[in-house]
Write a protein that binds this DNA or RNA. Structure first.
Length: 420
RNA sequence: GGAGGGAUGGCCGAGUGGACGAAGGCGGCGGUCUUGAAAACCGCUUUCCGGGUUACCGGAACGGGGGUUCGAAUCCCUCUCCCUCCGCCA
């Protein structure tokens, strides 16, 4: 959520930057409602002032044992008027807030302006696309033939877009989770968190998933609860409605969680394999930062995700998303894309974003520079480090052998009981 | 699942319709005293919104929301969270 006052004072700027994102924001309604609300609020406050004064008089009269009936009748009339005004103000306020919630974050000045993924900027590339002296298979074929992925039985148990990992496959998934968590916690200064996998509607609103993207979520029937689409939700909301001591910043958290997404509207896209599942595992990184250093934190976080791929020896590149391709809450986003032989191209495996104070304002997360200082909103950053299922698919494809077997990346072998 | 109890400022804790933005204590800040410190004593000590250059003025806030009332921390409804006991369960 943007600052209402900022939007009112910088209408053209907001319209221009959201237009860069390909979103036409009409602020007329927002401005009109805000002004109307302000006028009514002033009126209501003046009336309250009058009522407070006469109430005080009533109180005096009673103490002096004088008759206050006329005063009370008067005050009642004022009270009715206030009630009417307040009803109207409440309605206006809801609409103002709703309008504000539907405005996306403003892109940072370093973000290239563009329409879609074609306009993204490749920042750097690590490793060269894997070369094979045989025809490489897609990971779902590799995994199915090895008996470590079972899509058919998963479809029986639940439905499409689910997977059963079996034997070494399950072991690989678990090994990757541990490998990633160990790297982030032991070497990169993240604190490990194991949060709830279900979050309430207030939390989802704090991160920007609600109200606009309710259709992407799985909701629990009979509860205002949702399966988390990413650990970003519980991690960001960890400090919701708090004023934290500035001394704890930058606060770096990381968490392994499963993620649940309805993938509504993606029918026919990536239906095979592990790429687009209703349930997948992810290790998520989260940073609460001082506003002054959040973009440096973004570089650090992105480097942490890259380190995972470097150690696994998977070729990848870093892409700076253009204005049109960024997520709703983000100010600047780097995607990490790994080489996928089956597509003869790159595939997103991580997304690292600086949300600035956008989420912090929605979720009301503030900090104090000094104990006596005024609270300011923190900046929040989140990034995958990494999507585990996609990492499995990248390993199966890039490390496959002519005989259909898969060699384990060396750094992963200790996590696989030495299995090569 | 059943039965009770609770939520008040940075913290503890009083407050059952009007003088309460809220006693008292702790903590914090300033001062007196002291070579310095401690103790003692005195004073100050919430946040947000609107208006005025400043002193200031107005409004709001006692877990959230709604209601009763001229007036609500206080009465009613509702939601959330916490605690105790019973039952059940990993």
């Amino acid at each position: 959520m943007l600052d209402a006052k900022f939007v009112l004072e910088n209408k053209d700027f907001v319209v221009k930057l959201t237009a860069d994102r390909g979103i036409a924001v009409n602020l007329d309604e927002f401005v009109r409602l805000s002004e109307e609300k302000k006028t009514l609020l002033k009126k209501s406050e003046d009336l309250r002032c009058a009522r407070n004064k006469s109430s005080e008089l009533v109180s005096q009269y009673k103490r002096d044992k004088k008759d206050a009936a006329a005063l009370i009748a008067d005050a009642k009339k004022i009270g009715d008027e206030i009630q009417q005004l307040d009803d109207e103000i409440r309605r206006l306020d809801d609409r103002v807030r709703f309008a504000l919630l539907n405005i996306p974050n403003l892109p940072h000045e370093s973000v290239p302006v563009g329409k879609d993924s074609a306009d993204n900027m490749i920042v750097r590339t690590w490793g060269a696309p894997t070369v094979f002296d045989f025809a490489p298979q897609a990971h779902w074929d590799v995994g199915t033939r090895l008996g470590i992925l079972d899509f058919d039985r998963a479809a029986k148990i639940t439905g499409s877009r689910f997977t059963v990992y079996l034997g070494a496959g399950a072991r690989l998934e678990r090994a990757l989770i541990n490998f990633m968590l160990d790297l982030h916690t032991k070497e990169r200064g993240f604190c490990e968190v194991l949060p709830p996998f279900i979050a309430n509607d207030v939390s989802l609103t704090g991160t920007g998933n609600l109200p606009k993207f309710a259709g992407d979520l799985f909701k629990l029937e009979g509860y205002p609860w949702y399966l988390i689409p990413t650990a970003e939700v519980p991690l960001t909301n960890y400090y919701r409605d708090e004023v934290v001591d500035g001394g704890i910043l930058p606060r770096r958290l990381c968490a392994y969680t499963p993620c649940f997404r309805s993938e509504a509207g993606s029918y026919g896209k990536d239906i095979r394999g592990l790429i687009r599942q209703h349930q997948f595992n992810k290790v998520e990184m989260m940073v609460f930062s001082q506003p002054d250093s959040s973009f440096e934190e973004l570089e650090w976080m992105t480097a942490s995700a890259e380190e995972v791929l470097k150690r696994l020896g998977i070729p990848y590149r870093v892409v700076l998303l253009c204005t049109g391709d960024m997520g709703f809450a983000s100010q600047k986003t780097y995607d990490l894309e790994v080489w996928m032989p089956s597509r003869n191209g790159y595939m997103e495996i991580s997304s690292c974003s600086n949300c600035g104070d956008f989420q912090a304002r929605r979720a009301n997360i503030r900090f104090k520079r000094e104990p006596k200082a005024k609270p300011e909103f923190v900046h929040t950053l989140n990034g995958s480090g990494l999507a585990v299922g996609r990492t499995v698919s990248a390993i199966l494809e890039n490390y496959q052998q002519a005989d259909g077997s898969v060699v384990m990346p060396e750094r992963l072998r200790p996590y696989m009981d030495g299995l090569a």
